[in-house]
Amino acid sequence: MRKIVQRLRKYSIPTLLSMGWLLIIALVAILYPLISSSDPKTVYENDLGVGPLTHGHLFGTDTNGYDIFRELLHGTRLTLLVAVVAVGVGGSVGSLIGILSGYVRGKIDAVVNIIFSAVLSIPNLVLALALVAVLATAPDVNSTVSNWRKVFVVVLALTIVIIPILGRIARGATLSWSNREFVTAARSMGAKNSTILWKHIVPNVLPAVMAIAFLAVGIVIVAEGSLSLLGVGIPDGNSWGAILSAGRNDMEYTPQVVYFPIICIALTVISCNQIGDVIRQSLDRREARI
């Protein structure tokens, strides 16, 4: 316990607050079934659109009579799931492509680079929109798309958006690390390519990717909210963005239905950026020492 306290001391207060917030929402997302037993869509008919802290509704209710606090707790799950899966899968695939192409160099690298540039030349929200639009179209004109498919499509689109962002970071880092003396030394000693990659390149490239991965979580959460606002995101108030987008027509009467989701989104994005920044700074310091 004491050791943990000591280790935490070296971080600034904003960083600690960011860690705390991310920890809380992660716990809420994981433990949600234990925390909340009732359906988030319970309608409180006698409390339509009441303000925060009335009749036991911590954040108030919306005009449908849904308890906003409960909806937010419930929405945390899908919001974080989308962000973690998109950044996790997209980051892994992107890093793999980026590291390999940066290590191999030559023609393959040139092709990968130009493909990354082409995908990055479409602003990330616009790309996500295009992907969602195409993938979420029902195969038949008269049928509708199931909610699970909508969620899957949002995750897939955001994953594809993340791949070139993190892939390019991994590629750049690999290019610069594979030129270092210790890599040349390892090669001259007859180390295999796979050994060099695993022992020398990956451990150095991954921290740089991690720093940007936190920023990427922020990007994904904002993009998910934006997709919801544009009407093609996660449906039925099942994520923070979806709650926001469902509530925005009533914001004149029940501003709490807009306030609380945007506070959750903003806090999460700020926290991710803060932690990404701290990782980047510690990397820069290490870099300066080497």
């Binding site: 934006s226 926001l244 700020i270 950026n273 920044d277």
Partner: peptide, 17 residues
Amino acid sequence: FTASSVPNFALAFLLII
């Protein structure tokens, strides 16, 4: 630093209200 991470739609809703 904080302001640069606030999503623009969050700020928009705040200003609207």
